[in-house]
């Protein structure tokens, strides 16, 4: 009986402790939600004053932060990708950082800054981008596919400008061109990317000062954009891609908040 009573006491104590912790957590969650709502409302007002309009759902729904990453390029993997389509061939150094592969079924070029081009003289059966990923052996890297494009993902986020355009004619792949960076990626700076509120306010202010207010913000996405190239490496900076109704698509560096209508 003593053990039974002791168990009752322990249960009561544990229950009380759990309730207290749950209450603390609940209070914190509520406070956090309230602060986010306040911040979103303030950001919305500030944006409106600068001629930009963003939905509350967009402002209150932030993705996890991204960090500055570096990709150590893997020439062997890039060569394998090229040879998948043009066949095996000697790797010819075209200059300092560029290579050419004269394969049995076409010519591929790999440039120093990650640009990849392949002209395929004997087209491979390839009805869509999904098939291309299978054929290219790109299953190992994250990608999203459009109708005739493949966009690279790094750490789950899209690489803006890191896109391969596929020339598909009658279900056959005749050419590939664009940018793909194959290799190891790792974080080189632990500073998290700045929030969408900050990016939108910075962009809206710049556009407002330039006399071309942003108008309605149609969408915003956090991804990566090439920021600095070094021989064999590419540094990728977290970047917000913001689509506006009035002035098209803009890119805002999520560290420096510098904005540009175009990628490097």
């Amino acid at each position: 009986m003593k053990i039974s009573r002791l168990k009752n006491i322990i249960i009561a104590m544990l229950l009380a402790a759990d309730l207290v912790l749950a209450a603390v957590l609940g209070a914190r969650a509520f406070e956090s939600w309230r602060l986010e709502e306040d911040a979103a409302a303030r950001a919305s007002e500030a944006l409106a004053a600068l001629g930009a309009e963003a939905g509350r759902d967009m402002l209150g729904d932030e993705p996890p932060p991204l960090y500055m990453v570096e990709i150590e390029r893997d020439l062997a993997a890039e060569r394998a990708l090229a040879e998948t389509f043009v066949g095996t061939g000697a790797l010819v150094r075209d200059g300092s950082g560029s290579y050419r592969i004269e394969g049995e079924r076409g010519t591929a070029r790999l440039y120093g800054a990650g640009r990849f081009e392949a002209e395929i003289s004997a087209p491979a059966a390839c009805p869509d981008a999904g098939t291309f990923i299978e054929l290219a052996g790109l299953g190992g890297i994250e990608t999203v596919t459009g109708e005739d494009t493949v966009t690279q993902l790094v750490r789950g986020a899209p690489v803006f400008g890191g896109e391969l355009a596929l020339d598909i004619e009658n279900g056959e792949l005749c050419g590939v061109s664009g940018i793909v960076l194959l290799g190891d990626d790792y974080i080189i700076d632990g500073t998290p990317s700045k929030s969408l509120d900050a990016a939108l306010l910075s962009l809206a202010e710049e556009l407002h000062d330039a006399g071309t207010p942003a108008g309605k913000i149609l969408s915003a996405e956090l991804g990566y954009a090439a920021s600095l190239a070094a021989p064999g490496y590419m540094q990728m900076a977290p970047t917000w891609r913001i689509e506006t109704e009035s002035v098209g698509t803009w890119y805002v560096d999520a560290f420096t908040l510098e904005s540009s209508a175009r990628l490097r």
């Binding site: 960090y67 570096e70 150590e72 974080i187 080189i188 700076d189 632990g190 600095l228 070094a230 021989p231």
Partner: peptide, 9 residues
């Protein structure tokens, strides 16, 4: 996990 840059920029 943060690694230093390996690139010579």
């Amino acid at each position: 996990v943060v690694e230093g840059s390996r690139a010579d920029t």
